[in-house]
Design a protein around this nucleic acid. Sequence first.
RNA 1: GGAGAGAUGGCAGAGCUGGUUUAAUGCACUGGUCUUGAAAACCAGCGUACGUUAACGCGUACCGGGGGUUCGAAUCCCUCUCUCUCCGCCA
Length: 423
Amino acid sequence: MLQIGFIKANKEKVIEGLKKRNINDFAILDEAIQLDEERKATQTELNTLQAESNQISKEIGMLFKQGKRDEADVLKAKVGAGKERTKALEHKMSELEEKIENLLLQVPNVPHPSVPSGTTEEDNEVHRAWPGALPVLPDDALPHWELASKYNLFSLELGTKIAGAGFPLYRGKGAKLQRALISFFLDENTAVGYEEIQPPHLVNEATARATGQLPDKEGQMYYVTKDDLYLLPTAEVPVTNIYRDEILKPEDLPIKMTAYTPCFRREAGSYGAHVRGLNRVHQFDKVEIVRMEHPDNSYAALDEMVEHVAGILDKLELPYRILRLCGGDIGFTSALTFDFEIYSAAQKRWLEVSSVSNFENFQSNRLKLRFKEDKKTKLAHTLNGSALALARIVAGLLENNQTAEGIKIPKALQPYTGFAVID
RNA sequence: GGAGAGAUGGCAGAGCUGGUUUAAUGCACUGGUCUUGAAAACCAGCGUACGUUAACGCGUACCGGGGGUUCGAAUCCCUCUCUCUCCGCCA
């Protein structure tokens, strides 16, 4: 959520940014600013009234102590008169505050100047192309879902039997590969200073609200009605919320955390082509990295995260490219996002495996994550990224590394799997 | 799931027979005095949000959340949430 004060002071900049997101109606900004003016005027009047009332109440207290009941009664009547007006103003205040918040919730983050304009994923800019030739497989190469049955690695049918469509069941070397990747990713992340976190997998409403899943993306989360809890769509949600409502010292920053969790997504309405196998599922495993940064340092941190994720993909020997998302494709809360896509030689298409974003203070404003500097409290910047999402990495590994002798496991992963080939 | 106790500023902890409490006190923290330096001692400062002001300030709200009684609520009432203790069940 943007701050109303920021919008007021930087209206032109905000409008320029929102245009990149293909938004052309800015009436909402003016409305919010106007309501905020009204709010201020209301508060001034209310506070004056309250100050008077407080003053008189104090006098009544003193008169009572001196036993001057009659004089006290006179004052009592005087205060009583203003009460209705106070009530009305209080009511108006909370109404205005709610209206303003509802408007601000509809305004997405202002994209970073480097975000290219565009409307769809077609307009994303290739930030770093794969330098070598893309791997080419023989014509009889299999997609990962067929490799899975050939080597008995996972079963979508059994997952469907037990839970429903989109809940894969991994088994044998397929299950071991999952566990190996999770450990490998966590070790890579902790090696460069991310603290490992194991958060709850269910979150309450306040948590989902603070990271922006609510009220907007309600339909994307699984909801446990009986206990009023949500299954987490990404580890970003619980991990970021560790620092909800906190005021840090500058030296506490940066905060670097990593967490493995399963991720649950209803993916309502996303059916059709390209959803076969592990390409799009309701439950998948992901290792996430989250950072809280000083505003001056957040873009350097973003670059560092991008290089870190690239390094992991290098170790996995997967061909990948990095995209700078355009204004039309960038997330609601993000100021700048880089997507990582690996090339699946069997499907002959790119698969998104990581999304690394700087939210600047858009998220911390909701979170109320601040730090104190020069006696002022300021909002910190938050960033996060996948390092990495499992299902599609597995798809790419299986497909690209298939040979007549079986599926080769990259060297870096072998200490974790305990085997070098799936056959 | 049952019974009881509780929730106060970074922490500990008073206040809880409603009215100079502007939330005491201690610890921690920050600045200063002293010291070669440090410790100790002493002095001062030390919450958040919003409004107002050129600024110093001033005002308002906040004692788990929400609502109520009252001229006035940390204090009384209602309600929700959470924590602790005991019992039950249990990986």
